[in-house]
């Protein structure tokens, strides 16, 4: 049996920041493997290094030591342009949505498609499909300020899905919305994982939220302390 390349793999990943003159070991040798179709929750209190890990997995930052492989590619060997290309295969969902305020819902979903160089018609079609998938077909002409928190996060998820990413990387996706909407969002995320086979890596400090995932990776002080399969 041939094993498929893991979507994300880290090997003894270390990251040290210099805060003032004091070195801070944010990651102290993390080994993580995420396979295709997984839904992994990385759980930990603030300061546990989970955000630093997210930056490494998202190719937003480079490790001090150790390696990150995304789709089998060693991120540390890539230059600026190659990193940008790689990020297109990652769907980011942020806690604060990070939508572009001046663009409407459709414009926001079209943005990564435009960055990828798709032409206008393809972009429009794809954005409409995605907004329909997240249940915002009727709201696509609305700007972020005219949408509720839950609706904004749906737009962000639609945007993250635009370029058919290898995995969704979610940073506290329900951290800024009410619990009822949070439940709906999690329902959507689980459906995407189950029905569409989208690989999901979710970072959270919310124990309850983490239980929605197939696998929980617990972090503390820059290290993985426990991995729990929930299957």
């Amino acid at each position: 049996m041939v094993l498929a390349t893991p979507v994300v793999e880290t090997a003894d990943l270390k990251k040290t920041y210099i805060l003032g003159k004091v070195p801070v070991n944010a990651l102290r040798g993390v080994n993580l493997k995420v396979e295709k179709g997984d839904f992994v929750a990385i759980l930990g209190p603030s300061g546990s290094g989970k955000s630093t890990l997210l930056n490494m997995i998202g190719a937003l930052d480079k490790p001090t030591e150790g390696k990150v492989f995304i789709n089998g590619v060693d991120v540390s060997t890539l230059n600026d342009n190659q990193l940008a290309d790689l990020r297109r295969s990652i769907g980011f969902v942020f806690q604060f949505f990070n939508l572009i305020p001046r663009l409407d819902a459709k414009g926001n979903v079209e943005l990564p498609l435009s960055i990828a160089g798709l032409d206008k018609n393809e972009r429009r079609k794809r954005a409409e499909e995605l907004l329909e998938t997240v249940g915002l077909k009727e709201r696509m002409k609305h700007k972020p300020a005219e949408l509720s928190g839950g609706e904004r996060q749906r737009v962000a998820i639609a945007r993250a899905l635009a370029n058919n990413p290898r995995f969704l990387l979610m940073d506290e996706p329900t951290g800024n919305i009410d619990s009822k909407t949070a439940k709906e969002i999690m329902g959507l995320v689980k459906r995407l994982n189950k029905d569409e086979g989208v690989t999901i890596i979710m970072i959270t400090h919310d124990q309850h939220l983490a239980t929605q995932a197939k696998k929980i990776v617990k972090m503390l002080d820059g290290s993985i302390i426990k991995e729990i399969d929930q299957l």
């Binding site: 290309d85 990020r87 990070n98 572009i100 943005l111 960055i115």
Partner: peptide, 16 residues
């Protein structure tokens, strides 16, 4: 600045 961060996270190249 934040917008530029978003654009880069969405895969925009520096030269763009």
């Amino acid at each position: 600045t934040r917008e530029i961060g978003i654009l880069k996270a969405l895969g925009m190249k520096s030269r763009t």
